[in-house]
Each structure stands twice: as C-alpha cells, then as structure tokens.
Design a protein around this nucleic acid. Structure first.
Length: 548
RNA sequence: CGGGACGUAGCGCAGCUUGGUAGCGCGCAGCGUUCGGGACGCUGAGGUCGCGGGUUCAAAUCCCGCCGUCCCGACCA
C-alpha cells in the first residue's frame, strides 16, 4: 500500500476511497482485460447493471435489513429509498426472469465489471478493504442443481486461469458463505502476511479452508472413564473464565466443559465445548439454520436465569436445546459452571447430570488439527481474499419470485451461482506479493508498462536520440513502453524505474553511446546485461518474454 | 458503535505546557556549478493554523461543540 502511494498508482480521497492515477489505472485495466477475456471464453456475457438501485428488491430478499449500514443508502428527491449496489443478485435476477423465461434459454451467465459500494465499518490498508472497489460479478442461472454445479465448475476453471495469469500465489479454499448465503462456496486467497483472512491447509493433500469454515473432525477424543465421581460444588470466587478456573482449581482446560448460551429466535440454545476449544459462532448459526442464532449478551443471560461465566448444562430444561461439539464426546468428570455466581462443579457427567440433544461440529478450527480429508495436520496461513464463488441455489430466485417455464409447463425457480473477483484487491495483492525494498516488481501481465527506457544524460543529444529510437522500435513491435524523458539526474530516474516496477529496464547513457551498448535490467531478478544499441529493443523483448 | 491519538505550506513535521508579528525538512520556481543509483550553493513563491462558537486588549496556543483522518477493539462464558 505504501509503495502504491509512493509510486503514484493511487491517491486517497477519503477513508477507503481512492483515485486511480495513470499507472494504477493502467494496471487495473490490464487485470480487467484478463478477466473479461476469460469470462467471455467461459461463455459468460458482459452486461452493465446500475449502481444506484431501488430498495424494493433488497427488501424482498431481506438484505436491506441484513446488509444494514454496510449498504450505502440514499434518498432521492421524491423520498424514494435507493442504495448503491454492494453486489447485484437483486438486480440481475428479476432481469433474467424478464428476458430468459423459458428452460430453452438456459443456462445463462451474465457478468459485469463495475464499481461496488460498501460502507465498511473499518476500511483498511488502502485498496485491500475500500468502500468503493472494482469488482467483476457474474451470475449463473440454471434449470436444475446439476446444471448449477456444472456452471460453477466452468467458473472455477476460469478463475484459476485468471489468478494464474495475474501472477498471484493463491489457494482455493472452502469458505464461509457469510452474508450472501448458500452452500458450497470457495475463496481464492492470495497468500500474504498482511492479509486479513486466516486459512488452514493440509500440506499432504489439497484441502484448504477458511478458518471460519474449516471442518474439525474428532478433535482429540477426550478422556473417558467409567468411574464417575460425585457431582461436587466448589467455590471459585471471581473465576469466570476457563483460564481463571483452570488456575484456581489446578485442573487443565481440557477437563473443563464450557457452556455458551445462544438465542435462536427466542429459544435458549446451550452449546457445550471442551474448555481448550473455541466455539465457531458461524457453525452454530449453520447448525440452527434457518432460525437466526445470536450469542447472548450478559443482560440476556441474566434475564433467562443464568449467571454469566458460571453456566453449566446440569439445569437445562426441555425448553433448552443442548448442542455439543464433538470435542465433548467421550469425556467424563467435567468441571463446569454451577449456575451460581462464583461457583463451579466437578464430576459432571453426561446422562447422569446433563443431557445432550445433538452432536455437531461447532469448534473453531486451528493449526495442528487433523485434516478432514486424511492423515495430514493443518497448517495456518493468512492471505487476501481476491475472489469468492458461491453455489446459491434457488435462494434469491425464490425470494424475488423469479421463475422460468419448464418443459412440463411448470414455473420453476432458477438455480443460481454467483462469482465475484475484487479487481482492486488483485492490484493490492499483487503489489504485496511482488515487491522489494526498492519498490514494485509487477508480473508482466499486469505491469502498467512492460519496458521502461531511461536515458541518463539528457544533455547529450546522441543519448536522447538513441533512447527515442529504441522507444519507437518497442512501440512498433507492440510493446507497452515508457520513455522517461524527464531532465532529472540519473539516480532519480533509475530509482523511479525500480519503484514503479516495470519488468524490464533499458538504460542508455553517455558511456553506452561511446561503446555502442545499452544496459538492460530485469527488475524481478536484478540481473543486468548489455546489448548492442541496434538490438536493444529486441534484447528487451527477449528479456520480457523470460520475465515472470 | 466503544477506546486512543492526530488535524499548522503540495508532502512530512515543530511551535501549544507558560496566549504577544508563522517555523523546519522535502518538494516547487529562477540562476550557477554538478550530473550513469535519490547532488550542492544562492535567491524566491507558497499558510482562512480542520470548521464553528466562547474567554481575552490579544488565540495555532486556553475552554465548548462539530467535522475529518489514523490506530486498537467490537464472539469466547
């Protein structure tokens, strides 16, 4: 981000809102061209949907509320509510229903490359999380689930090609569907230490998943014993956290049973998990779907008659649903809350002291967990989510009442998929992955210029003429070249060439004119070479084709 | 939304404690020297001190309000 500003690719206008300067715009346009080519090749058709959209369809799908303040909302002069599009399921679905009303028209895949607006509560790191960002969004419409899955696979292939062509080091991970909803979905995460998203991957197979979505299979079975101790209450003054109780009683966190209370549409849900584990609230939400689940705050806990920090499962009546994470399986003689402030119990046992209604995977995955696919051990890494694909099914077509006429004369809801690529994020991710202390090192496919020609002695006509000649030769051969004809001294221009990061530099100076040689440098490797002035353009192009 | 900090020239900052004629570096313009890895000298231009109100003979400085920006947090019983 710092380099993108220093190298004059972008300038900030407001929090999370940026102007694209000539260099940044060129890079963005090149990414756009790659995306457009691959989408077209995959059979998608480009459209342009409005940015300013009426509120009604958003209210129909419920997202006017669930998106909440994340959506920029405006009111027009007639008092009509509008929004700035953060994504376009609500716009494209009714449009498709209008235009493609027959099963004979399907499948259809429409995409656009357009600016998106999300009023992020905390914009960060420049282009990484902006409030205005360029996104390619595609929407597939199929007759049935098989069709949707095959449209999805076509998009996944196109996405791999796009991310490869942009020179990103990335992983395809199973992800959490978040606000958009739906089932199967994948993120394309560019590996980067500054990334906001953590993911886990298996070194011995191709499993990779977002930390929020990663499955946790049978995390260490716990310690089972047939020898059930009596249920005994002990005072634990002030010890309301697992850590504090563990310390107070001198028992490891693995022997604690953590009980968390959720509200699911008015009903109390108790979630049990082993003390050394964290609950993944997204998983709880999925387990209780479609009832919306929310972690109770302290007031709600108190209102329902429990003591925050000292909750145990012993007193849960029939009106409470008790979910248990697999980490609780096989455990016995638990230490858990006594349902009284400043007290816990020891020797709590399933069956005798409490019941469990359902077993679920509710645990937050972490490094060191076993791979769900085999015998590997998961490793954690972080990155930037460049793209996200979803199999939506009929979720939006149902909410919006969008149907087509099937062969048998019935009205059916479209099986949808949606596919997003953050183009501005790809700029940020590529800059993050390809730079050194001196500046940026763009992969040639998305570099603002492929070759920079630097005459170092602007007071020498022979130098300037040679540089211009080589520059013209490059242009004539279809190369995107930049001539640095500023009157600045050599050091400034060479450093700037490094900073903006074109893959190949040609340096022409007084000494070179005398010896008939041009100096070339490959930015990524730093490798320098020489070529006769007459062949400098050709040599640069050969260097370029060898560059990453 | 909660906590913290900041807002003075295009950029980065000092000055504010203890009120009294607006300062530094970089950049910019002119002249000269220098010039193949961020040169140097001299001269010069450039500021409603975020906005509004208050205290005072006098406010960048003290007080109140607002706006903007950045950082941390916003799920762990």
């Amino acid at each position: 981000h710092v380099l993108l500003i220093r190298a004059a690719f972008i300038r900030k206008n407001a929090a999370g809102i940026y102007s694209m300067l000539p260099l940044g715009w060129r890079t963005l346009r090149k990414i756009e061209a790659i995306v457009r080519q691959e989408m077209d090749a995959a059979g998608a058709q480009e459209v342009r949907l409005p940015i300013v959209v009426p509120a009604e369809p958003w209210k129909q799908t419920g997202r006017w509320e669930t998106y909440g303040d994340l959506m920029f909302k405006v009111t027009d002069r007639h008092g009509r509510e509008m929004g700035l599009g953060p994504t376009h399921e609500e716009v494209v679905t009714p449009l498709v229903a209008q235009e493609f009303g027959s099963y004979r028209d399907l499948p259809v895949n429409l995409y656009q490359i357009e600016w998106k607006y999300r009023d992020e509560f905390r914009p960060r790191f420049g282009l990484l999380r902006g409030r205005e960002f360029l996104m390619k969004d595609a929407y597939s419409f199929d007759r049935d689930e098989d069709g949707m899955r095959s449209s999805y696979d076509v998009m996944m292939d196109a996405y791999r090609t796009i991310h490869d062509r942009c020179g990103l080091d990335y992983r395809v991970v199973e992800a959490d569907p978040g606000q958009i909803g739906g089932g199967v979905n994948h993120e394309f995460i560019a590996v980067a230490d500054v990334g906001e998203d953590w993911f886990l991957y298996c070194p011995s197979c191709d499993y990779a998943a977002d930390v929020e979505a990663a499955a946790v299979v049978a995390p260490d079975a716990g310690r089972s014993t047939a020898d059930h101790e009596p249920l005994t209450e002990v005072d634990t003054p002030g010890a309301s956290t697992i850590e504090a109780v563990s310390q107070f009683l001198g028992r490891p966190a693995e022997e604690m049973l953590k009980t968390m209370l959720f509200d699911a549409g008015g009903r109390t849900v108790a979630v049990l998990i082993r003390g050394d584990r964290e609950v993944n609230v997204e998983k709880v939400g999925r387990a209780l779907w479609p009832v919306p689940a929310e972690l109770m705050d302290e007031q709600t806990v108190a209102k329902r008659g429990y003591a925050m920090g000292f909750v145990g499962p012993q007193v849960m009546g029939e009106d409470v649903t008790v979910l248990a994470d697999h980490s609780v399986r096989g455990g016995s003689n638990w230490v858990t809350g006594a349902n009284r402030v400043d007290a816990h119990v020891t020797g709590a046992n399933e069956g005798r002291d409490f019941r469990i209604d359902r077993w679920e995977d509710l645990s937050q995955a972490r490094e060191g967990d076993p791979c769900p696919n085999g015998d590997g051990t998961l490793v954690q890494s972080r990155g930037i989510v460049a793209s996200h694909t979803y199999q939506l099914g009929p979720r939006y077509s149902k909410a919006l009442g969008s149907t087509f006429l099937d062969e048998d004369g019935s009205q059916r809801h479209y099986e949808m998929g949606c596919y997003g690529i953050g183009l501005t994020r790809i700029v940020a991710a590529a800059a993050e992955q390809h730079h050194d202390d001196a500046g940026l090192m763009w992969p040639k496919a998305i570099a603002p210029y492929e070759v920079v020609v630097v005459p170092t002695n602007m007071d020498q006509p022979a130098v300037v003429e040679a540089a211009e000649r080589i520059y013209e030769q490059l242009l004539a051969r279809g190369c995107e070249a930049l001539l640095d004809d500023r009157d600045d001294r050599a050091g400034v221009k060479l450093n700037d060439a490094d900073l903006i990061g074109a893959p190949v530099q040609i340096v022409i100076g007084k000494r070179g004119i005398e010896s008939g040689q041009a100096d070339l440098k490959a930015r990524a490797t730093g490798e320098r070479s020489q070529a006769p002035l007459g062949d400098a353009a050709g040599a640069a192009l050969r260097l370029l084709s060898a560059a990453p």
